[in-house]
Design a protein around this nucleic acid. Sequence first.
DNA 1: AATAAAATTTAGATTAATCTAAAAATATAA
DNA 2: TTATATTTTTAGATTAATCTAAATTTTATT
Lengths: 218, 218
Amino acid sequence: MNSFTEENYLKAIYKLSLNGVQGVSTNAIADKLATKPSSVTDMIKKLADKKLVSYQKYQGVNLTKKGSDVAVSIIRNHRLWEVFLVEKLNFKWDEVHDLAEELEHINTHKLTERLDEFLGFPKFDPHGDPIPDKDGNIIQHKDVTLSDLIRGEKAVVVGVKEHSKSYLNYLEQLQLVLGAEVEVKDIVEFDATMQILVNNKQVIISNQASKNLIVKKI
Amino acid sequence: MNSFTEENYLKAIYKLSLNGVQGVSTNAIADKLATKPSSVTDMIKKLADKKLVSYQKYQGVNLTKKGSDVAVSIIRNHRLWEVFLVEKLNFKWDEVHDLAEELEHINTHKLTERLDEFLGFPKFDPHGDPIPDKDGNIIQHKDVTLSDLIRGEKAVVVGVKEHSKSYLNYLEQLQLVLGAEVEVKDIVEFDATMQILVNNKQVIISNQASKNLIVKKI
DNA sequence: AATAAAATTTAGATTAATCTAAAAATATAA
DNA sequence: TTATATTTTTAGATTAATCTAAATTTTATT
């Protein structure tokens, strides 16, 4: 079995690998986990001993198949619990991350599968992130963001790239929730600030905000 | 915040105090937690520093109000999660203990209260143990066991004093589940083995088994 | 290619939880 | 009540995860 800490490292490395990076850097991991590079080096050695990552000094790490499987299963758990918290316990989408961070480590095959079934085999979590299926397959929706649209285009909100409470809370105030329809009315050339229509209401949104909102054109 | 380990110590001390014991012994705690007395002494000192227990060398420990509150809230969590696992995820009563041992430590007020509400404010867990309410009040049903009955008496199964998988599994095979009606047909004088009627079926049950089954006379 | 800057690793400490073995205190029994 | 047994505590080590500070390697820049 792996400790919570080991699991968090594997998850961090997995997520940092998604950008197609070959060899995740020690500093990047330290940043993501809010720890020190020297601590990361120590842990990487341990994970390498357990064949969960492949590692050569100064060259960064990559997950092995085994390590990747563990990471995906934790992500599966995390996202299923988020669905549970929002759909069954009526939490809001900006409240569930920290709780799911704890629940995800109760990593028992049977519990996960029963939960999945109880929830009706959801495909996405409350933030639009895809939930890996029981075999670890995961649908990656391609990241078209609101900031990619041009004037006159319409789209539906399908996810977020940033999960902070403040961002999610802000989006909710603007009614920019999953499924909302948006239409680009105008874009400021200077800083890409957008004027958009959400539920017939005019909204002004910064580039910082629009580039973190994943949409699907319609 | 308290670590998982600290919480497990508090829970163990709480349970060992239920028999009206003043000053829970180091050895009893070590036994319950499958650890060594020297480890227990170390941890007790730490808990005493945090004002969670009162302690004098060689005299055993007692929970303070603060320590007792923590213990009760963990027990509340544990039992609520057990209800969830059995009623919502269709686990059997002999499968839920270990999972609940992990879930109980995600000790967030809001989560517990939402779960309680979702489950319909249950009063008892799947083994018949009372669930403390949100203020920590707990109904203690007085422990009449099957072994206390005499020939001819009838009763309903309301709980168990022993939670091992093997015991629970055995009871289920005999249909001695919560709510089952039993009638004492005969008792062997030598070793208190009982012949009882469960759902019109004759069952022979040892004293070891009957004294761990909590019943209510009817 | 030499040097400066940045990233990474090593060395050595620290903290929490545990252990074994030995010492001290308490309880029990002749 | 003295000796013996049991319980509890202390002393000193160990393991996992972390840290700081120093050393090393890689990368970037002149």
